[in-house]
Design a protein around this nucleic acid. Structure first.
Lengths: 336, 336
DNA sequence: CTGTTAGCGCGTTCAC
DNA sequence: GTGAACGCGCTAACAG
């Protein structure tokens, strides 16, 4: 049952039926109503695939994320999906499982069947990215490549605030638990941390790299303890929670003995005990803005001027950070 | 740049090029290699949309979940995506935000552009579901409709085990915090709970309904406390964690004063303190099996015989459940 | 084994 | 304002 059936039944040509669905104003009112009535009655819907072929556009976009089941990816994906469908776009989702090769493969597979591609924290080489972007409109998230529009969250300041916060609480030995090396997220967090440490006259001491998961935090906790630090800034919330759990198992109390700060502010942060002090990243906003950028690029609107959108992060103080323990040594070191 | 260009350049007909990509064995080795070389050189890839139109199949499936950002949905989605692409299928994802109307709308929008549709815990009316299933192959998850293949997790036994577990620990007043009314998940959990209570000679007392989120658990905790129960089975982990948090804020210790059991075994369960005793649902397996069923249905293979797949759940005992408090009254009531 | 012929269902000129 | 004709890029049926 196609456009021709409707046309025949309505006593018009297929072209007219097509117009009714694409440029209704170009059809006489009477004809239009008749056609619409018939279409409704026959429950006719234009075949999306045929339409895509004829138009040269699919009405779909694709997103490739590191891990679909990861809370942060999921929030971005959700926002992307909501924003995309506001404009009538359907969304392909693919997970790379944090493997650069797979990521590239799936992105390539998606490219020819979408109008645009959204790559979240992509791992593939610059060249592969550029090549892809030459094929189809691409927007990046948490990655910067010359000439490819991107939305990033600039956590530098907020991470600095976190360090200041801990410093103000008397902490002088603050460790950063590094995430995936080379990832934009880790670079930004690390540099924000280093910068703040320098500003405040503290030594910057990163541990790691660790992967971004709970188990990595568990492992990191013991190293942390051995380091003698009184506070820790974890790569993200999940790692931070791993740290807290392990510390707790070893009888170290948070924040009484050690302060822990995360990054992300996923829903997890409010669910754990103690509630996690963390740097909130605007995940949903990142997703929304990325879609806006992508749809603009697809529509051929100039994207150059705002091709790099940097959204700010924000320190959220909760219960996992507190005053430095009143150890004699620490006091002496911390006092003026 | 299309199949014709490759054909011309390779000195063959478009049909031959097509064959090289679809049934290589039907082409002479020499011709095949020549065509492949040319295609490679021109970086030619068959246009998926055109292919879909000609074949009448899109090579895509769609999934509609209640909430993309929800941990349980995300795990299913991830498994579905991984399983689907093993067979070369790309995945459309859409979230309903737990609104029956939207769910129906997006499912309808997806239907004409996919080979099959996966509906996770759908909320729309039976008739709407049937109508949809008449349009395109559909597989359901956590919902039973005559004639539509489905994968469900039968948590009845495992929920029963949870109740037995608490009973064995001395608990005699166990409350169930009900989830979304009418949802299959809630029905199963409720009936498993009731059944076990009956078997063990306890009164079944459900509170709620509550929605499936953390905040609902926080709210439920106070009602729970007022009820005088010594143990609680929450609709899911997130609610359970909400309960634990609120109890903790009110100075009630878990499991010392009250035992809490969740359902799902999302990653959250191992991240909170105390680690959550919970009923593990095989989310990933559900996703995988649903895809297998769907792909079989798409391929026209008979799905009838195993149109209802019930996967078992399993009680995971961790630290949030313990012996009933040694109150005089409770002891008296609990002893034979 | 290969080429020719027809569509798949729709959008879009171009005349009328 | 409407219809006829053509093409989007590919696959499938039929000859040869």
């Amino acid at each position: 049952m196609s456009i021709r059936d409707v046309a025949a039944r309505a006593g018009v040509s297929p072209a007219t039926v097509s117009r009714v669905f694409t440029q209704p104003d170009a059809v006489a009112v009477g004809t239009r109503q008749r056609v619409m009535a018939v279409a409704e009655e026959m429950r006719y819907t234009p075949h999306p695939v045929a339409r895509s072929l004829a138009r040269g556009r699919t009405g779909t976009i694709g997103i490739v994320v590191p891990d679909i089941a990861n809370a942060f990816s999921a929030v971005i994906t959700k926002a992307v999906q909501q924003e995309a469908r506001r404009d009538g776009y359907a969304l392909f989702v693919s997970g790379s499982d944090e493997l650069a090769d797979d990521e590239e493969r799936w992105a390539r597979a998606l490219a020819p069947q979408v109008d645009g591609l959204l790559l979240v924290s992509p791992l593939m080489p610059d060249d592969a990215l550029r090549e892809l972007a030459a094929t189809v409109p691409v927007v990046l998230t948490n990655r910067l490549i010359d000439g490819i529009p991107a939305v990033v969250t600039d956590a530098t300041d907020a991470v600095g605030h976190a360090v200041e916060h801990l410093h103000a609480l008397g902490h002088r030995r603050i460790v950063y638990l590094a995430g995936p090396p080379g990832s934009y997220s880790n670079e930004i967090r690390l540099s924000g941390y280093r910068e703040a440490c320098g500003r405040l006259g503290m030594d910057a001491a990163a541990l790691g790299p660790f992967n971004a998961r709970f188990s990595a935090g568990v492992r990191a906790a013991d190293l942390l303890l051995a380091s003698g630090a009184t506070a820790v800034l974890a790569y993200n919330d999940e790692v931070a929670v791993g740290v807290v759990n392990r510390l707790s198992d070893r009888g170290v109390r948070v924040p009484h003995d050690i302060s822990v700060v995360g990054v992300d502010d996923t829903s997890l942060a409010e669910m754990v005990t103690p509630r996690l002090t963390t740097v909130r990243l605007p995940a949903a906003a990142v997703g929304r803005e990325a879609v806006r950028l992508l749809l603009d690029a697809i529509a051929g609107r100039d994207v150059e001027e705002r091709s790099l959108l940097a959204l700010p992060a924000e320190l959220i103080i909760r219960a996992s950070s507190g005053p430095v323990p009143a150890t004699v040594g620490e006091r002496a070191a911390g006092a003026p």
